[in-house]
């Protein structure tokens, strides 16, 4: 047995991914492409929201979708029915997307000629919160059946998103979900977050969300490169 020595490592485990994300964000900015990272629990309505949003915006913006499904192509097929190009990433057992996976998806797209790319991240509220994808903004969905206590259980996710879509509002009258309380909990750690209440079933609220997104994309694309 030799002597035991202490070696200082002092390295951030996420540093490589964070650096790659910053680089990708820069590249997309130069190419004038806006990328949205959409996160939510399984079944919260990610694909449904994308379908509604594409319908609302496809005449104004050139859109594509990167679908990260653990192991199926169902969602990508649904998107393809709208006439929008979609890329299916097989994430195997992965619980989140990182920049290297997103870049694989982007390789299959002509990003230069696109205005807006959506990433449907893997369905869970834990892991995608910790891995930057390189997207321009992070958006999440919380659906009414999931309950108003989720901001307390998944604070990182709620604290990092630019906008929160509260989906399945058509279920509100059947549930004990307290929208004001949920909103208060979210704003505690994220005072500036935009909150949209929608139903992908009835179409309620989709317009104001789509309008906000369109304006956010336009503002960002109009920004001069440094």
């Amino acid at each position: 047995m030799g002597d035991i020595k202490l070696i200082e490592v002092k390295e951030d485990i996420l540093a490589d991914n964070d650096a790659a994300a910053a680089e990708l964000r820069e590249r997309l900015k130069k190419e004038k492409t806006f990328m949205v990272n959409l996160m939510a629990s399984p079944g919260a309505g990610k694909t449904s929201l994308l379908l509604q949003t594409i319908t609302a915006l496809k005449n104004d913006l050139r859109i594509s979708v990167i679908e990260a499904d653990i192991d199926s192509i169902v969602d990508a097929e649904k998107i393809a029915e709208t006439g929008i190009q979609s890329i299916q990433l097989r994430t195997g057992g992965f619980c989140h997307l990182d920049v290297s996976m997103v870049k694989k998806g982007l390789e299959a797209l002509d990003t230069d000629s696109l205005d807006l790319i959506f990433i449907e991240n893997v369905g869970n509220l834990v892991c995608p919160a910790e891995f930057d994808t390189g997207a321009t903004i992070d958006i999440m969905i919380l659906s009414i059946p999931e309950g108003d206590d989720k901001p307390l259980k998944y604070p990182l996710m709620f604290s990092k998103c630019h906008a929160l879509i509260v989906n399945k509002m058509d279920y509100l009258s059947l549930s004990d979900f307290n929208v004001d309380l949920m909103e208060k909990r979210v704003r505690k750690l994220n005072p500036d977050i935009e909150i949209f209440k929608v139903s992908c079933r009835t179409g309620e609220g989709i317009n104001s969300w789509a309008k906000w997104l369109k304006k956010t994309v336009a503002d960002s694309l109009a920004e001069k490169n440094p």
């Binding site: 035991i4 202490l6 490592v9 951030d12 604070p155 604290s159």
Partner: peptide, 21 residues
């Protein structure tokens, strides 16, 4: 104040040191 907090720490993922022969 009861709102408008930001996260100062609690999200780190860091290798501090190792012991080796």
């Amino acid at each position: 104040a009861t709102g408008n907090f930001s996260i100062e720490s609690g999200r780190e993922y860091y290798i501090k040191e190792m012991e080796a022969e």
